[in-house]
Nucleic acid binder design. Structure first.
Lengths: 338, 338
DNA sequence: CTGAAAGCGCTTACAG
DNA sequence: CTGAAAGCGCTTACAG
């Protein structure tokens, strides 16, 4: 492959001048710049990144700690972060995060981070809960941002969605349709967002003077199956709800399946609303009304603020919430008397 | 950060000796090796990869052209390739591939490949159909392997699943249960695997002397919705099938939803089998019997053969098929007379 | 506006 | 078994 020397020779200039052209530095005569660019074109020259990195002492490389790669949330996040990084000429090194607690894994991640001299880390959930690793990053002054951490105030900068407000909006929407018996299937207790969403749900009920019955709040585990089981229990109870707010879309899908099985029509006899706007929510029948997280926004804010941390900007907020929004589809309607 | 010089000074040896220890080269006295390792430990020294790459002229970096990052297939593939690469001390650079045909995108990918001096590329579907890019790789002698390309014999090395055999096994399984009217919902025609799967289906019917009625073969587009529509048409026809082999799991899920809507029980009145063993196939009710592709195997073979290509091994097969396997769950049974 | 020198942190022959 | 020298392909001061 051609090097900077080859270009310099071809354009009859010094390598320094070629370097100026490559890096868009001022102080090169237009005619010279033209000659150099021609030489670059002809030789199909592309700078060697390793050499640039070595000299600059900057890698222009982010590491992305991406656990549970299989979830649609993680994938969407990944592709959005990739795009944001690329806009800014950064590359992404993906670090798998099997089990966040395993010390061997932490050790390996630390090594890779040092080995590649990454400029900063983006820690997707549940990576931020690995405090050993987070501590390593702090001790080694590796800038990092966390997404949706369970422990707030432990990190230089975090991003999350307005889970509380989103859940509140979902519930208020059901109330506005006329529902009075609104059930909630909660996400796993270990997730902070699960409590946020439940809080938003409860507040909506209280605000309009509806009683929040413990009989209407069931614990799920985020899976389709747990939504299915919970919905069966609710629909077979003495006083079944007319609407169910599921803590996430998977469980909402479980609710739809249970309703189909029991011959309960949606949205005629039961309204269902989910959370996350996962791909499946737009593919299931009926298409699911849900609360969308703005993952592109989360990605953008993560990358932008990581760059701020790298530039040692100290007056950043410690965390930012990205607004959710209600996505109206076909799974909610006015309540029916059965 | 400490450099090789710091380690050398601390251990009172030359940097060359440190280099030998880092790279596990022979010809270092055990006591010296020990001293160097102690120094490395104390300084928490990790070699600078950019310097190593620059000197070695090897990047130990693969690029992964990963399109449609959102599909579960792509995600699984991604995480398996990541794992395989890491085992061999290779890093993965992920290249987004918006639309495979866009020339600007091809240009950008070509630049990044050169810029990073990647040792080789893994091209996930449908990247391999971008012949402009594949040609660029060939012209620049960048080794690459393709996964599931639509054009075979165009690439140095390709991996795919035994789509034909898998579909054949699925259909034979339904036949073995006693089904005689077995429908097929085909995947998008533009995909070669779609034809392979249909071929396997037809061969199974012909082999036992069952007629392959065109009324029983419907065209889908891989989506849940298209499976739903096709299943409704089939189940509402004069002579409905007792079993449906869907070309992929998404369409099989559509079949399940349609059956629920029409009050057709599964597997009592209708057997359904899918293809791919996507996560959803194990979460839906009833859990879906399907044909699994071995994505870990595909990843392993891709990475291994890419390394062979990089080592200039010329006696590789041009393509390899990875066996599929039947995954028995709850969506198939003996046919019922309605 | 342009360039010669030094050096980033390693590894590759080579010498002893 | 160990090391001094050269150089990978760039950029960073500095000089003119």
């Amino acid at each position: 492959m051609p090097t900077i020397k080859d270009v310099a020779a071809k354009a009859s200039v010094s390598i320094k001048t070629v370097s100026r052209v490559i890096n868009d530095e001022p102080g090169v005569a237009d005619s010279t710049r033209q000659r150099v660019n021609d030489a670059i074109q002809q030789l199909e020259y592309v700078p060697n990144l390793s050499a640039q990195r070595l000299k600059r002492g900057k890698s222009e490389l982010f590491a992305l700690l991406l656990p549970r790669v299989e979830s649609p949330y993680a994938i969407k996040l990944f592709s959005c972060i990739l795009r944001e990084a690329q806009k800014r000429n950064y590359s992404i090194l993906t670090l798998p995060n099997r089990s966040g607690k395993e010390p061997a894994n932490t050790e390996q991640i630390a090594r890779v981070v040092k080995n590649h001299r990454v400029d900063g880390l983006i820690v997707a959930p549940p990576g931020a809960d690995n405090l050993v690793l987070m501590n390593f990053l702090k001790l080694n002054h590796v800038p990092y941002v966390t997404i949706n951490p369970n422990l707030l105030n432990e990190h230089p900068f975090s991003v999350e969605s307005t889970d509380d407000i989103g859940a509140n909006e979902a519930t208020r929407y059901l109330i506005s349709l006329g529902h009075k018996r609104i059930a909630h299937i909660a996400c796993m207790k270990t997730e902070r967002f699960s409590h946020e969403r439940q809080k938003g749900y409860l507040r909506a009920l209280v605000d309009v003077g509806l009683a929040a019955s413990p009989l209407l709040i069931l614990q799920g585990d985020n899976s389709i199956e747990s939504g299915y089981t919970a919905a069966q229990e609710l629909l077979n109870s003495a006083e079944p709800p007319t609407a169910i707010f599921a803590g996430n879309d998977e469980m909402a899908v479980g609710v739809i399946l249970a309703a189909l099985h029991l011959g309960v029509t949606i949205p005629g006899e039961l309204s269902v609303i989910g959370f996350d706007d996962t791909p499946i929510s737009n593919q299931i029948f009926p298409r699911l009304t849900t609360i969308a997280q703005s993952i592109p926004e989360i990605a953008r804010v993560s990358v932008e603020n990581l760059l701020e941390l790298i530039d040692d900007n100290t007056d950043l907020p410690q965390f930012v919430q990205i607004p959710t929004r209600l996505v109206l589809r076909d799974s909610c309607g006015v309540p029916n008397h059965r």
